[in-house]
């Protein structure tokens, strides 16, 4: 009954949502039956529905060998990416918005998003040009200054820093666009009023800009928490050249799954990995969303 009532009252809204809902069903929910692959030993003859069930067998390899190390790496890198990424992107957006020259601000923006458009293969190649043992620019400099060259791709000490640097180098400019657009959406009336009250620029940022950014910051954080068990494959696989000697600090869930399954092409085990990663993210998001709801109802995701 409520449904019919709603339909009459908000008919237009249903129509507006319809195209999106159709797309969701066709491209997301219809293939969703495939999650059962995670519990099956898939063979093409019996098909997805007919293949034999194997319980949780497909998940076992995710908890074997270096599982603990891999999970730790994935989590720690993502935490750094989320927290520092947030601070950097927001700071960059505010700075770009506040500096006095419009022209320079636009120029900086354009340049800072450039690295985002390079594929990981090209990024890997570029950093290889700097770090390679025989011909790398860094090592040429080191030996020119009389230091011992460093074989970066077999020495894991530097890689946590290198990976974090590469990640932010590639993405921070692009990610700051969301906050930049958000900052520009804040009504100028607020600032005008604050100026009249005699607030200086720092106070304006502290008391107007940041509070106005709060909803988008919360949403962005919730969304990235959902992906906390996923790692950027290109960053950890290609930029490191999948170099074995670096594994203790570079191996993450996604590279582990890839290295383990690439020769076998086991669809069940691939599905299991995805389900595991999603499930953990899902639980964390529900939890975060629940907390956010308690504090600030309007900022919650759903």
């Amino acid at each position: 009954m409520t449904f019919l009532y709603e339909l009459r009252k908000h008919g237009a809204l249903f129509v507006m949502a319809l195209p999106a809902l159709i797309l969701l069903v066709l491209f997301n929910y219809m293939p969703m039956f495939g999650v059962i692959l995670a519990f099956k030993n898939y063979n093409f003859y019996d098909g997805i529905l007919g293949s034999p069930w194997v319980g949780f067998d497909n998940f076992k390899y995710l908890f074997k060998g270096d599982a603990w190390l891999i999970t730790r790496n994935t989590l720690l890198y993502n935490l750094v990416f989320i927290v520092i990424g947030l601070i950097l992107s927001v700071a960059l957006a505010i700075i770009l918005d506040e500096i006095r020259s419009r022209f320079l601000s636009k120029t900086y923006q354009t340049i800072l998003i450039m690295p985002y458009f390079l594929s990981w293969t090209i990024v890997a190649l570029i950093f290889y040009a700097f770090l390679s043992a025989d011909k790398g620019i860094v090592n040429q400099l080191l030996s020119y200054m009389g230091f011992h060259p460093i074989n970066f791709y077999t020495d894991m000490t530097y890689w946590p820093y290198i990976l974090i640097f590469v990640f932010f180098w590639k993405s921070v400019g692009y990610n700051s666009i969301i906050y930049l657009a958000s900052v520009t959406g804040i009504s100028p009336d607020y600032y005008e009023a604050a100026t009249i009250d005699g607030a200086n620029k720092w106070q304006q940022i502290r008391y107007i800009t940041l509070p106005c950014l709060r909803p988008i910051i919360i949403i962005m954080t919730i969304l990235s928490i959902g992906k906390i068990f996923y790692a950027d494959f290109g960053l950890f696989y290609q930029v490191t050249y999948n170099s074995g000697a670096l594994y203790p600090v570079t191996q993450v869930i996604d590279t582990y799954v890839y290295n383990g399954l690439v020769t076998m092409g086991n669809y069940g085990m691939t599905a299991a990995a995805g389900l595991y990663q999603s499930f953990v993210g899902f639980v964390l998001v529900i939890l975060t969303n629940w907390i956010v709801k308690k504090v600030d109802r309007d900022s919650a995701l759903f």
Binding site: K64, N242, S243, G260, T263, M264, M269
Partner: peptide
């Protein structure tokens, strides 16, 4: 390989870590 897929997935990772270097 069906009976030992779990082991092979883990072994493949050990191989790609140690064998090439």
């Amino acid at each position: 390989t069906t009976p030992v897929q779990t082991q092979i997935a883990a072994i493949n990772n050990v191989i790609s870590q140690f064998y090439p270097p």
